[in-house]
Computed example of a mutant assay.
Amino acid sequence: MPELPEVETVRRTLMELVAGKRIASVTVKLPRIIQRPAEPMAFADALAGRTIHTVERRGKFLRIILDGMVLVSHLRMEGRYGVFPAAEPVEPHTHVLFHFDDGMDLRYKDVRQFGTMHLFLPGEEFQLPPLNKLGIEPLDDEAFTLKAFRERLQKRTTKLKPLLLNQEHIVGLGNIYVDEALFQARIHPERAPESLSANEWKRLHASIRATLSRAVDAGGSSIKSYVNGQGEMGMFQHQLLVYGRKNEPCPACGRPIHKFVVGGRGTHICTKCQRVKVKKDLKD
């Protein structure tokens, strides 16, 4: 599933490709992609004649801002956008086509068919699902302070990794970047939040910010099928330290990377660098 760096990269490329374009009509080939309004025809009619002004992001969701409407789109497992000449043949698994008045299309392709689209009046999208219960943005300097981060998680009884994956606490983090951030902070994913010392909270906060920032700079990670809005792969997979590197040597100590399951998710750690049992900082 595309995580924050991949969705941010798609947002940036879509800004270059579609900002300022006017939608002449919309074709919906797979109705269940459209979650709001209930009728796909109403979705298409509401967008016809509107111009895309900008593309923003909230967690793993894209917010396509038009005159008088906001389209909220989630790519889920394998959804992708691309811009093509309208005369070009439509690829299989293309489910929604936005036809612009300049002869180009914005096309949404989704082999797994899990993606969603919701249409709202401006401002309404933050009051209703799927955006109304999202947590804080980890790349927002004002929202993602060390204090706010710690207050969100430290009193929870769930293991640390499932907490970081929960979009109601911190948005945008998925399996790849949680594993990477926990490794860089030298924290075991099964630790209880209350067991972390003040220094560990500081390290984890910094590692989340640093990992996501580097991934955004690299255009995200193309582990499976991810490409940006221009069909280009991300390059951060070449910088991953533990994720997907089972049995390879830890870059810090050389011990083989171990893979196991935490909260139903495949998890990569170094058993030496990320110990389960640590002494709590008495000064915390």
Rank of each mutant, 00 (worst) to 15 (best):
A48K: 05
G49T: 03
I52E: 09
E56G: 07
I65C: 11
L66M: 15
G68E: 06
M69V: 08
M69E: 15
M69P: 10
V70D: 04
V70E: 05
V72P: 00
V72K: 03
S73T: 06
R76H: 04
M77I: 13
E78K: 03
R80K: 14
Y81G: 11
Y81I: 01
F84K: 14
P85F: 07
P85D: 13
P89F: 03
E91Q: 13
E91R: 10
P92W: 05
T94Q: 00
L97C: 14
L97Y: 00
F98K: 11
H99Q: 13
F100M: 09
F100V: 01
D102H: 10
G103T: 14
G103V: 08
D105P: 06
L106S: 09
R107F: 00
K109E: 03
D110W: 01
D110Y: 01
R112Q: 10
Q113M: 12
G115I: 00
G115F: 02
M117E: 00
M117K: 00
M117D: 01
H118M: 01
L119N: 04
L119C: 07
L119I: 01
L119D: 01
F120C: 06
F120G: 00
L121M: 14
L121H: 10
L121F: 04
G123V: 02
G123Y: 04
E124K: 02
Q127T: 14
P129R: 10
P129F: 09
P130K: 06
L131N: 02
L131K: 00
N132C: 11
N132E: 10
K133P: 00
K133R: 13
K133L: 12
I136C: 01
E137M: 06
P138F: 05
P138Y: 07
L139F: 11
L139V: 12
D141K: 06
D141Y: 04
D141G: 13
E142A: 15
E142V: 15
A143C: 07
A143T: 13
L146C: 06
F149M: 10
F149W: 09
E151C: 07
R152G: 14
